[in-house]
């Protein structure tokens, strides 16, 4: 009896999945894990063996400042996305299917449009000859403020770029809230505001957590937009890593920062995974 069972599990069937997986696993080992390992290695061997790069990170106030700046920016962007995304997702969930589809189309279109295109659009909008500056001047702001290459411009653009993630996360949860629950609450005597606060808001919370986590994580490692739109004096981590490599060829320091960035991202992911399960995050 036992031998029959053993044959059943150790048969060629157990080998087959690994054969199917083998090419991809080998590829990822060679072209994902090894390069990643190399970054880890460089962080402790360039220019010399030891934890010097990490020590430098903690001792130099500039690096701490950049990490703090990045962290706060990511938090702010996530919060803005939540505050702005919630009404839109709510509107979509409450509208007729036609209007909802139209709004979804808009969000999807934004989602799919290259980061670079959207970053460029903000350069046009906020430029010295752009409509926003012109509007502020029209309101009597003289001379109009310089908007481009500031923290404001990069934050605004990042919010715009990442808001689709938030709206999609929220909408997918809101869409599944049973309207009968809201009617039930109302029939039990809750006023509209209480219905929202006591029923709708808690039920949409998973979408809020999902969206905020996504936006926060993406924002932590954001390179393109802060580099193009942000203030050179207030860099974010990814931008500083780029500068270290392009301008100073300091691979050791860049790698050490990259490892810290990676660790922060993974910590966020792990915390999320512990509490909610990772498979819910990706779509």
């Amino acid at each position: 009896m036992l031998s029959v069972l053993n044959r059943g599990t150790a048969a060629p069937g157990a080998l087959k999945p690994w054969l199917l997986l083998l090419p991809l696993v080998l590829f990822l080992c060679a072209f994902f894990l090894v390069p990643l390992g190399q970054v880890a290695l460089m962080s402790v061997t360039e220019p010399e063996f030891g934890l010097g790069n990490y020590a430098h990170l903690t001792s130099d106030g500039l690096y701490l400042q950049v990490f703090l700046n990045t962290f706060l920016t990511a938090l702010g962007v996530a919060l803005c996305c939540l505050l702005l995304g919630y009404p839109l997702a709510y509107l979509m969930a409450q509208s007729s299917p036609r209007v909802a589809a139209l709004l979804m189309l808009l969000v999807t279109m934004s989602f799919w449009t290259s980061f670079l295109v959207r970053t460029y659009a903000w350069m046009v909008l906020l430029g010295n000859n752009g409509p926003v500056t012109a509007f502020l001047a029209f309101l009597g702001w003289d001379p109009p403020p310089h908007l481009l290459f500031t923290r404001l411009s990069s934050t605004l653009a990042m919010v715009h770029i990442l808001i689709p993630y938030m709206v999609m996360s929220l909408y997918s949860v809101m869409k599944r809230i049973d309207p009968a629950l809201l009617r039930a609450a109302e029939s039990l005597g809750a006023r509209p505001w209480s219905v929202f606060r006591q029923v709708y808001l808690p039920l949409s919370a998973p979408g809020m957590v999902n969206g905020a986590t996504l936006v926060f994580m993406i924002c932590l490692g954001f390179y393109v937009t802060p580099v193009l739109l942000g203030s050179p004096q207030e860099q974010m981590v990814a931008g500083l890593i780029g500068t270290q490599i392009e301008e100073f060829l300091d691979f050791g320091q860049a790698s050490a920062m990259a490892m810290v960035l990676l660790a922060s991202t993974l910590i966020v992911l792990t915390v999320y995974h512990r509490r909610f399960g990772l498979d819910r995050l990706w779509g």
Binding site: V34, I241, S255, A258
Partner: peptide
């Protein structure tokens, strides 16, 4: 199987700047 699943989705969780350094040197 769980490990394979993790490995196949892992590149998604990496900030691209980290991989960029890795690829640049590797």
């Amino acid at each position: 199987r769980g490990l394979a699943n993790l490995m196949l989705t892992m590149p998604m969780a990496m900030p691209h700047i980290v991989l960029a350094i890795g690829y640049y040197s590797y």
